[in-house]
Design a protein around this nucleic acid. Structure first.
Lengths: 164, 164
DNA sequence: GAAGATTGATAAATCAATCTTG
DNA sequence: CAAGATTGATTTATCAATCTTC
C-alpha cells in the first residue's frame, strides 16, 4: 500500500474550467463547420469524408469494418449503417474477407476516390484556417504530444465498456 | 491591394496531419466517454449536463433560449427539442421573458440542480483524468490561448451561414 | 419584415437483439 | 461461446416551414 495521497479537488478552478470549455466548444464548432463546408460545397458529410480518407490511405484502398470503426472512433453498429448509406451513394462497396468469412471489407470505389479528391481542397483549407494556421510548428508539436497522451488514456478507458 | 502571397500548400504534411487527426479523434472519444460515464452512472446525457451547468451559473438560474444555444454551440432547433425533453424529465422549465413576449427563458428547476450536483463529481473526475491532469498549468494556459484563438475564428465563420 | 422560438417531417445515431463463422 | 458484423426499433438531430411578437 502506498501512503495516503491528497485527493484531487472535487471542482475545477477557473483556469481549468476555461481550458475545458474552450476545448469542448472548439471541438463542437470545428466539427460543425467542417461538416457544413463539405456538405454545402460537395454534398459530403464530414464523417463520410473521414472514411474516404482512411480507405484511400490503405495500400489496397480497403479496410475491415471493425478496424475502420476503431480508427474513426465510431461504434460498429453506426459504421455499418453509415457504410450502407455510402454504398447506396456508390462511394464504397462491401467485400467478404478471404480466409475469414466473418470479416467484411469496406472498399473505396473509383467514384468514392473521385469525390474525395474533389472535396479534399475544401477540407484542407478548413483545417488550415480553423486550426493549423493558428499554431507555429513548435506549438503544434507540443499540442500533438498532449493530444496523443489524451488519446492513449481514452483508448485505455474504452476497454471494459463495450463498443457496441 | 497587397502584393501576391505564396498560396498555402494544398495538402497537409505529416506533422500537420498527425496533429489534426489527434485533435479530431481525441475530441470524439472524449465526448463519447464523458457521455457514457454520465449516462451509466447518473442517467444524464453530456449535452443535458452542459445545459444544467450553464443555467446553474446564472444569477437567476435561467437563460434565454437563443443565448443558451449560442453558449453551448447548438442550433436553436436542436436546443428547443432538447429543452422539451429536459422539461419532461423535470430538469428545467420554460418561462416567458418579461418585456419581450417573443423570448423564452429556460429555467433550472430544483430537481435539475439536484441532479447536476449528483452528477458533477463524475464529470469533474472525467475531465481531470482525460484532459486536465495531462497538462501542467503552463501547458494548459498555452493550450487555452490556442483554443480561444480557434474559437474566435470559428465564431467569425459562423456568420453568413445561418444557425438553424 | 426581422428576431425569437417552435414544429413536424426526414435523416442519422444508439441500443438491444440477432445472425454467421471461427 | 467468442468474434465480426448486421438489423430493426427507438431516440435524437437536422432541415424547412411556420408562428408570434417586435
Amino acid at each position: 500500500m502506498s501512503p495516503p495521497q491528497p485527493a484531487p479537488p472535487l471542482w475545477l478552478d477557473e483556469s481549468e474550467m476555461r481550458f475545458w470549455r474552450a476545448f469542448i466548444i472548439t471541438a463542437t464548432l470545428l466539427e460543425a463547420r467542417l461538416n457544413r463546408d463539405l456538405l454545402d460545397r460537395h454534398g459530403l458529410a464530414h464523417g463520410d469524408y473521414v472514411i474516404l480518407v482512411v480507405l484511400s490511405e490503405q495500400p489496397d484502398r480497403s479496410m475491415r469494418m471493425s478496424a475502420l470503426a476503431g480508427v474513426t472512433a465510431t461504434s460498429k453498429s453506426r459504421l455499418s449503417h453509415q457504410i450502407t448509406r455510402m454504398e447506396r451513394s456508390g462511394l464504397v462497396r462491401r467485400e467478404v474477407v478471404e480466409d475469414d468469412a466473418r470479416g467484411v471489407l469496406a472498399v473505396l470505389t473509383p467514384r468514392g476516390l473521385a469525390r474525395l479528391e474533389e472535396a479534399a481542397p475544401t477540407h484542407v483549407a478548413g483545417v488550415r484556417t480553423y486550426m493549423v494556421d493558428l499554431l507555429n510548428p513548435e506549438e503544434r508539436e507540443q499540442a500533438t504530444v498532449f493530444l496523443e497522451r489524451a488519446l492513449k488514456v481514452l483508448r485505455g478507458a474504452e476497454e471494459g465498456a463495450g463498443g457496441g
